[in-house]
Amino acid sequence: MGTNGVAVGESVRDAVYRSCILLDDEKWSDWLNLCDADFEYEITAWSPEINKDMIYFSGNRDYLQSMTDMLDKHNTDHSPLRRHATVYTIDENDDGTLTVMSSLAIYQNLLDGINSHIDAGESHLFVIGRYIDKMKIEDGKAIFLERKVALDTRRLDKGSHWPL
């Protein structure tokens, strides 16, 4: 990672943690602004039930923008998600980009999940997995080129309309 490895590490971690906060706060456009114009996003899981790698959701930056722009037209539950990521490894690829692996747990804080009189305010684990990000450094800033949310969780109950 060269001599400025410490600085790179800092920008990468800053970008990953910032993405968590922006996603938590449902600031979708601000989150997408951390990403390259050609950004690609995927939610995946490996299923031991059917012995296959699966894709649960995917899209480029424009697709994510239009899906999030249309959220107001969709019925959704309003239980906010809280992403807890820890950057574990940062590896440099041959082309100079970085592969960043973070451990991920997303908690759900119920509002109207089931019966809000009883459940509102309760928090539980929603999904576990990893963020596998591909990034580049530009002017000292880490930019997302790809994000793969590799889930372990396959029992997703009501699911979600939101990017994870």
């Binding site: 899981a45 299923s47 039930e49 296959k52 699966m54 649960y56 029992r155 997703l156």
Partner: peptide
């Protein structure tokens, strides 16, 4: 098959 998930 290419997709499997469950909901309770």
């Amino acid at each position: 098959i290419f997709h499997y998930h469950k909901a309770v």
